[in-house]
Nucleic acid binder design. Sequence first.
DNA 1: CAAAGTAATGCAAACGTTTGCAAAATACAA
DNA 2: TTGTATTTTGCAAACGTTTGCATTACTTTG
Lengths: 350, 350
Amino acid sequence: MSKRTEKTIVDIAEELKLSVSTVSRALNDNPNISARTKDRVKKMARKLGYRPNALAAGLRNNKSKTIGLIVPRISMFFPAAISTIIQNKLQEHGYNLIICQSNDSYEQEVALVNTLYSARVDGLVVSTTLYTTDFSHFDVFKDNNIPLVFFDRVPKDYNVKVIKGDDYLGGFTATSHLIEKGCKDIVHISGPLSCNLYLERVAGYKSALQQHKLPFRKTRIFYQELTRDNAWQTCEKIFAQKPYPDGIFASNDTTAITIMEYCRKINLRVPEDLKIVGYSNDPRTEIVTPPITSVDQYPAMMGERVVAALMELVTSRQTGTPRYSQEIIPIQLIARESSAAAIKAAGKKK
Amino acid sequence: MSKRTEKTIVDIAEELKLSVSTVSRALNDNPNISARTKDRVKKMARKLGYRPNALAAGLRNNKSKTIGLIVPRISMFFPAAISTIIQNKLQEHGYNLIICQSNDSYEQEVALVNTLYSARVDGLVVSTTLYTTDFSHFDVFKDNNIPLVFFDRVPKDYNVKVIKGDDYLGGFTATSHLIEKGCKDIVHISGPLSCNLYLERVAGYKSALQQHKLPFRKTRIFYQELTRDNAWQTCEKIFAQKPYPDGIFASNDTTAITIMEYCRKINLRVPEDLKIVGYSNDPRTEIVTPPITSVDQYPAMMGERVVAALMELVTSRQTGTPRYSQEIIPIQLIARESSAAAIKAAGKKK
DNA sequence: CAAAGTAATGCAAACGTTTGCAAAATACAA
DNA sequence: TTGTATTTTGCAAACGTTTGCATTACTTTG
């Protein structure tokens, strides 16, 4: 149907016998265009069905009003929660968001960084792959002084803006909680240590044991991608022989939930025989029976801080070399039945 | 640090004493550029750290290699599941995806359509707001013959490509299932009828009742935004007076889960006293106790079909007026304990 | 009423690509 | 060697904006 119907500002200009510059300024509410002209231009724009071309403007201005986001997976609770916030906040600031998934593949991450750079995004937000230890593919952004913000899974030894949870404290708090509830033999199921945040949680775990004079044993800690399948297999290992642990601190909630299912299968009572703490406070932890204790990471706060940091960087682009800071978002342990003390739990179960 | 370091193809051209056109063609593997030149160009591009500018190319080619996606919320299971698939598939096709959330606000949806048009996306994928009944804001896309695909929440009486679940059958199957399990008085909690798919599920519900010679009563059906809070309130209404229903078909899983929590609170046994069926097969239905029967909508298949349809439209842009078709994705009832027949359930509960 | 100041508009270049057409370089044939 | 076919390269315009600077059109003031 409509062939070359794409109206541009030159169409408006011709129609009104004005110059394109005047039209452009009028549309952008430039102060030294008369009110009358602005009015005429806007009316005509509407009449012609004019639609601004962001590509052209972006090319000219060297800014796309678009932000890139790379997360491992948008279907996982924590990144999903943060992405939601980020998208909504950016929308308020007039930015579009290109969301990409690395699927925890380093190669994909590298490729994505490049295409997002090609798209000339005005900023990039990243939560890295589990296995990203080399960060040089982000250099393009740093070198060209394009706002770059990492959150949650953040780089180690790479000078850049970082917003992360308090993983050390999280690990410490979770473990301490189990100890306080009476656990003496606590297994920790961790993610791979290539990802820094797991390292910190492990440190917190160790530190809590030490502080309570409990022994740390290498055999009581497992490193794995925290999937359902892996969790099940690890359970099989753990419960292949006695003594069983009396507490498990899992570094994500999928794992915690799976452990609980396993317990049900082998008739181990939670929390009487085994206490469980997860991580992230996935809403699933609340609806499962018994509800699972977890460490909340305040995703909304983190998302808001990410956008705030990004906007700061975007507006202060020219102001010399930015000082890269690291922000720590607090955590909070949400105690639920899965880690309740023996007596109380027994009472509740009738 | 680096000031005007942005290298362009003209830098490459100058460096190599070639024309920009040759460089451009070389980079794009144009067949009538000699292998030797291609090689030289690519080497130099790498050496200079050249990065293609997609904005410039997009402006010139009138295509951005970017697709827009508008969903109510990316944190809800079903849209999230589909978005994941769509993003991954598009990535394979070399397209970026701009994901936007309407937050179920009609005004936001309109605004998003416009900004995505401004961004000159090469296609738009939409699952509408609950309250979108006027679709004229999508006309820009139709009129300019830009690929436009709707899924799940699709328009009524708006000639466009549509990929939807079999909602009538879903409603029918869910209701029939409850009847077969012995329910005689089935409540249906539906979304607002401004959204077509709920209308169809209601039709399925009615039709199942009728087919089994059960009476349809207006008072046994509720229309509301399917949130947790609303579900709880509706439960309070439903169980404010006897007779209680013996089955509830909820049009989403959040509602189904909330109903079950409510039952626990008022000591109503599921499935003995009340059987429940949800919709969408949210993974939460599986981990809750008892697990909840739900209607699976094959989100992966739907997402794949969306992308396939989109790509077809993108490639056949010039080929006259496209014939808009409607694709129906099948559904499948996943029977779980929440709707188990009386005897069996009693046995299982010990 | 002229001069000077201010307000409003226009010119033209630039942003980084791609591409139709023309031109040059090379290969082939007679 | 010349002419023709074929391969390879270059010219220049175009995509739709924005913006520094120049110009014109109005006001104001002495």
